[in-house]
């Protein structure tokens, strides 16, 4: 393909324009994400047809609230995975922040202080992960596996496993029930995080370096970039996002529990990978994560409406994950196959 002979050099002017010309939208689109968008649409249409309650505004608004925390952490996780790292501790950080925030409210802290504290706690754990990973050279998989255990353990120890109620008069509790244009605060904040993630990944040097580090960290280091700092920032970002998600979950449920968000990290990672972000690093898509998060939650929501046994949900979600990743790996063959079909027609 790349062995085609280019014609003798054209004069410099037009050649410069030709070289710098933006590629078509089709060429720029992540094909894995496109497949996912199709699958998500199909699943959406299926549930809309299967159950009349699915396509009601109340359910869609509820769906947006359910997607919120997965999406918030998923956007941050996209950076972590694109940088070639992983964060397994986000579920524990969500539970920790939810439980401790509730305790702080019970202890009489003002809501504004608790909200700041929640974000700082999340960021703090993220930076612990980041420091050990980037500056001590311990694989993120190991570091976050350890903090997964430690952070939830601390929350359990602190609350003795009891759920801590949040008084409905506090601002945090009001945040949990607040609606704007029919959608919850969680949904709107998640949307804002998606926009922020899009800008950060695709329009800033930070995003560029995150992608570069995932592809070839040594090359980025030789270009004079502080690779360790960028890596730590990515993990700090996912901790911060988990802190935000923990606060919003506690606010919505009206209580903080050290047992909440079990397996949350796997849901988030599944959403990110479903969207087309490469687990090997170097390739990330925020739009994909949005689609992946929607898909996992549409399946959960739709199956609940259909009164399918709740035990079936993880089975179906897992099967879809394998199927989609398989399609993505074989995507080139599939595209070739489609091309052949259309050519013959």
């Amino acid at each position: 393909m790349s062995t085609t002979q280019t014609p003798p050099e054209a004069p410099a002017g037009p050649s410069v324009q030709r070289l710098a010309r933006q590629r078509s939208l089709w060429e720029r689109t992540n094909k894995a994400t496109l497949v996912m968008a199709g699958v998500t649409l199909a699943v959406f249409v299926f549930f809309a047809a299967a159950d009349s309650a699915f396509l009601t505004f109340a359910n869609l608004s509820n769906l947006a609230t359910q997607v919120g925390p997965v999406l918030i952490v998923g956007v941050a996780m996209t950076f972590v995975i694109t940088a070639g790292q992983i964060d397994l501790s986000v579920g524990s950080i969500v539970a920790f922040v939810a439980a401790i925030s509730a305790q702080l409210l019970v202890a009489g802290w003002d809501s504004s202080l608790v909200m700041v504290a929640a974000l700082l706690m999340g960021l703090g754990w993220g930076l612990v992960n980041g420091w050990f990973t980037a500056y001590q050279g311990i694989p993120a998989f190991i570091v976050t596996l350890a903090t997964l255990s430690v952070v939830r353990g601390l929350a359990l120890f602190q609350t003795e496993g009891f759920s801590v109620p949040i008084a409905s008069t506090t601002f945090v509790a009001k945040l949990g029930t607040a609606r704007w244009l029919g959608f919850s605060a969680t949904a709107w904040i998640a949307l804002a995080v998606v926009v922020l993630g899009l800008v950060l990944l695709h329009a800033t040097r930070f995003g560029q370096y995150v992608i570069g580090i995932g592809a070839a960290a040594e090359s980025v280091r030789r270009a004079g970039v502080n690779v360790k700092l960028v890596t730590m920032a990515a993990l700090g970002f996912s901790g911060l996002a988990a802190g935000l998600a923990g606060l919003l979950i506690a606010a919505r449920l009206g209580s903080g529990s050290a047992n909440s968000a079990q397996g949350f990290e796997l849901t988030v990672i599944a959403a990110v990978v479903l969207g087309g972000t490469s687990l090997l690093g170097g390739r990330g898509t925020i739009v994909g994560t949005l689609i992946g998060a929607l898909l996992t939650q549409i399946i959960a929501n739709g199956l609940t409406l259909l009164s399918v046994s709740p035990y079936l949900t993880p089975i179906i979600t897992g099967a879809v994950l394998v199927l989609v990743v398989w399609v993505n790996l074989r995507g080139r063959d599939l595209a070739w196959f489609v091309q052949r079909l259309t050519r013959r027609a």
Partner: peptide
């Protein structure tokens, strides 16, 4: 010799 490029950029 290893060029120091990033494949996905």
């Amino acid at each position: 010799q290893d060029l120091a490029l990033c494949d996905t950029l």
